[in-house]
């Protein structure tokens, strides 16, 4: 499988040859894991900056719930966790070769992911209306940067998920090969996990 990708764009090459045992997982999955390492460091820089700034000036943060709408975001968090569950279901359906279930669960994941972004847009609009903007002190700076970049990641995830769903509707994923579903799933769970950390430190503490 390692060579599969290279072979697709080059059929003058020799037939599939052997290779040295590598990581034991196929390229796309390994690549995604490695890429997620990079993503961890990206959020580390934002979260690290947040922690340092907040310890430097704790008085610049309003008590939890005073500015931010915690109940709405809690519901939104619940939505995102649900989308991780539907993602797991989609992957399980792909493994079973159950095309109908795969399509439904993927569609559900896309919809829930999109509504998470929708709720976040609504939340931003409300906050800006109240006068809470990125230039509103360190609180506004960190809040919008961190949640904004998370939202950007969810948006990218939703777009990729739409592509995977479209391919699922074309029957591209079989019980033996459903790499796209697994790889997007890794990304999706990661983004979900980051949100749980952000929700805790930005909204609840």
């Amino acid at each position: 499988m390692a060579h599969a990708h290279a072979l697709t764009h080059d059929d003058v090459m020799r037939p599939p040859a052997g290779r040295e045992p590598g990581s034991g997982v196929y390229n796309e999955k390994l690549g995604m894991w490695v890429f997620l390492g990079s993503e961890v460091m990206f959020f580390t820089s934002l979260i690290g900056a947040y922690i340092i700034l907040r310890f430097g000036h704790p008085e610049k943060w309003a008590p939890p719930g005073e500015v931010l709408n915690v109940p709405v975001t809690a519901v939104n968090t619940f939505l995102l966790i649900c989308s991780s569950v539907t993602m797991v279901k989609a992957f399980a359906s792909a493994q079973d070769g159950n095309q109908r279930a795969l399509r439904s669960w993927l569609l559900a994941t896309v919809l829930i992911g999109a509504s998470f972004v929708g709720v976040q847009v609504y939340e931003y609009a409300e906050l800006v209306h109240k006068g809470f903007v990125p230039s509103e002190g360190l609180y506004g700076s960190t809040f919008f940067t961190m949640t904004g970049f998370h939202g950007f990641h969810v948006t990218v995830g939703v777009l990729c998920m739409m592509f995977v769903t479209w391919r699922a509707f074309q029957g591209k994923y079989t019980a033996t090969d459903h790499r796209g579903v697994e790889v997007i799933g890794l990304y999706w769970h990661f983004v979900d996990l980051v949100w749980i950390i952000l929700f805790t430190i930005v909204y609840l503490i």
């Binding site: 390692a2 060579h3 040859a17 052997g18 290779r19 040295e20 590598g22 990581s23 196929y26 390229n27 390994l30």
Partner: peptide
């Protein structure tokens, strides 16, 4: 990691 020739 994944694409070394046999023996490498």
């Amino acid at each position: 990691i994944n694409m070394r020739a046999p023996g490498m």
